[in-house]
Design a protein around this nucleic acid. Structure first.
Lengths: 224, 224
DNA sequence: TTGTAAAATGACTGACTGGTCAGTATCCTG
DNA sequence: CAGGATACTGACCAGTCAGTCATTTTACAA
């Protein structure tokens, strides 16, 4: 406590000495972080720039040195928070065993959508969908589509391998995507679905995977 | 064209002579309809009461004769638009054949979430989730939960019947719900998932049902 | 026809907030 | 340490819009 009078009611982020100049990147990150918190809590319209500024430990005017306006800040916040692990994942070595590779990808996806940030982003993006369609576009291309392609390639490998039956394969990626996404969202919004049995993320994933594998298991040899 | 100068640029709803007194119920319905359209297009915050009034063919002040404020209007609009076919469905006669009964319920659910109104409501409700949690509660109880219970009872009947294997049954309703819901939302937001193959609602349902039945099909008799 | 109660109107107000910019603090160079 | 350059500040302004209410219109009974 060097000088409580200055920092006492400044919220978390701000502890880097106020009014001190900072390298542009750092300030930007500060503001983006604050924006995420504020927007997550109250949405694009109900969030006052003043609040973001306070959260970031910065004056309102400062925000305008880094972003031309509120909407641009929002957009930029979304873009940056869509941390994409896909680059790493896509170039990572495939497991030679298709089933294990499938498992690895699914688990990575699950941990991605299970992070607390993800459902918030999803809600914010869908919430402003009619107003900022390019943002949804970005989100779709950057997240949904790429994951689905990746999943599909894993499924296909399992089909070639004989681990999965071919009947459901063509749509399997979309089905799995739907199951995982919806479960992640249900977990995040207990209000919206009184999600009692969904606390344990691993357990949920196991159930979903069990269901998925049941659908994909090769058909029984035709009964005599 | 009796008197174009009066009605020419009044939008659709308003054709009941303006400024004429109407029974309270009718006016309320007028306003709610307009509110749905307006909120659907621009969301709770971006919609001006003036716009709703114009759409309803009514002056702004009139709205306040029927609703205490904007938020209440929004809430009421959601409540009423969640047309619940469930009452009818729940008391409707079950088909004695469990599989056919299952089919009937699923198809009714699908037609419900496939109506253009549904995704709009869903988006609006989730969009204001942190601000109006009671609304989500209402939506959840009135829609998601009741449907899931109904679906589950159909699934259980099919399991008793031997049409479905018991392995995946305990979570089957939630899985099916997740699949249908997510597909309905994907169809409604092509931007968000470049939903190419999802135009034909019946075809989509068939694929989902095919997948679901594959997961639920009884396990093959243990191989010799 | 007229009187009156209820319904509807829309100009108005006041609070609010996105965005600005003149002024201040800090840093840096020589 | 001077003095220029740049990051930062926050009081202010202008636009917006939810909500109000004095006035007008309508319906209808006498």
């Amino acid at each position: 406590m060097t000088d409580p009078s200055v920092t006492q009611d400044l919220p978390v982020t701000a502890r880097l000495d106020p009014r001190a100049r900072r390298p542009a990147e750092e300030r930007e990150a500060q503001i983006i972080d604050a924006a995420f918190t504020a927007f997550a809590a109250t949405g694009l319209d109900e969030t006052r720039l003043e609040d973001i500024a306070r959260l970031a430990g910065v004056a309102k005017g400062t925000i305008y040195l880094y972003f031309p306006n509120k909407e641009a800040l929002f957009r930029e916040m979304i873009r940056r928070t869509v941390v994409v692990r896909l680059d790493a994942l896509e170039s990572a070595p495939h497991d030679p065993d298709p089933l294990r590779d499938f498992d690895r990808v699914v688990r990575t996806y699950w941990s991605y959508v299970t992070e607390p940030q993800f459902p918030v982003l999803y809600r914010l993006v869908t919430g402003v969908l009619p107003r900022l369609p390019e943002l949804s576009q970005f989100f779709a291309e950057r997240v949904s589509l790429r994951w689905q392609k990746l999943l599909q390639s894993c499924v296909d490998a399992c089909v070639r391998d004989g681990s999965f039956g071919p009947e459901q394969a063509p749509e399997a990626a979309r089905m799995l995507h739907a199951l995982l996404m919806q479960h992640a969202l249900m977990r995040a919004n207990p209000t919206l679905c009184s999600a009692i049995h969904l606390d344990d993320a691993d357990a949920v994933l196991d159930r979903v995977l069990g269901f998925f594998r049941a659908a994909l298991r090769p058909a029984a040899p035709s009964p005599a």
